[in-house]
Simulated assay, not measured.
Amino acid sequence: MSDPFLNTHPSLSGPATAGFAVTPSDGAELAQPSRALYVGGAGDLAVTLLSGDSVSLGAVPAGSLLPLRVSRVHATGTTATAIVALI
């Protein structure tokens, strides 16, 4: 299949082109910052945004797609599961 967007510069408003499973950690940053987070299992989410600010999001519903630029998903304070970083 040909990709009509092959020569288009990616933007934050465009669709994600890759992703990886996230294992929450209090000490390790993500392999690369996210464009968005998908939360497969409901729960709380504690993250460090790309700005360096740490925030907690309570009661995130299962199946949520959150447009967050995140450098870390913390283990402490995160009860959500099946988290995927989209880039």
Rank of each mutant, 00 (worst) to 15 (best):
M1K: 06
S2Y: 11
S2Q: 14
S2M: 08
D3H: 12
D3F: 11
D3K: 12
D3C: 02
P4D: 02
P4F: 00
P4V: 02
F5G: 00
F5S: 06
L6Q: 11
L6M: 01
N7R: 13
N7W: 14
T8A: 09
T8N: 09
H9D: 12
P10I: 10
S11V: 07
S11A: 12
G14R: 09
P15M: 09
P15R: 09
P15Q: 07
A16M: 04
T17V: 10
A18N: 10
A18D: 10
A18G: 11
G19Q: 09
G19D: 10
F20G: 11
F20P: 04
A21P: 01
V22I: 14
T23R: 12
P24K: 04
G27E: 10
A28Y: 00
L30Y: 15
Q32I: 08
S34M: 07
R35A: 13
R35M: 13
R35T: 05
A36Q: 08
A36T: 01
A36W: 00
Y38S: 05
Y38I: 00
Y38R: 01
Y38G: 00
Y38H: 02
V39S: 05
G40H: 12
D44H: 15
D44S: 14
D44K: 09
A46H: 14
V47Q: 06
L50F: 10
G52D: 09
S54V: 10
S54H: 08
S54L: 04
S56V: 15
L57T: 04
L57S: 05
G58T: 14
G58D: 11
G58F: 12
A59L: 13
P61E: 08
P61D: 09
P61V: 07
A62F: 15
A62V: 13
A62Q: 13
S64K: 03
S64L: 05
S64Q: 07
S64I: 06
L65W: 07
L65H: 06
L66Q: 03
L68Q: 11
L68P: 10
L68T: 10
R69Q: 06
R69P: 00
V70Q: 02
V70W: 05
S71R: 15
R72H: 07
H74T: 01
H74Y: 14
T76Y: 00
T76P: 00
G77Y: 00
T78N: 08
T79F: 10
A80R: 07
A80K: 08
A80D: 07
A80T: 12
A80C: 05
T81Q: 15
T81W: 14
A82K: 06
A82Y: 03
I83M: 03
V84Y: 09
A85M: 06
L86Y: 03
I87V: 15
I87D: 04
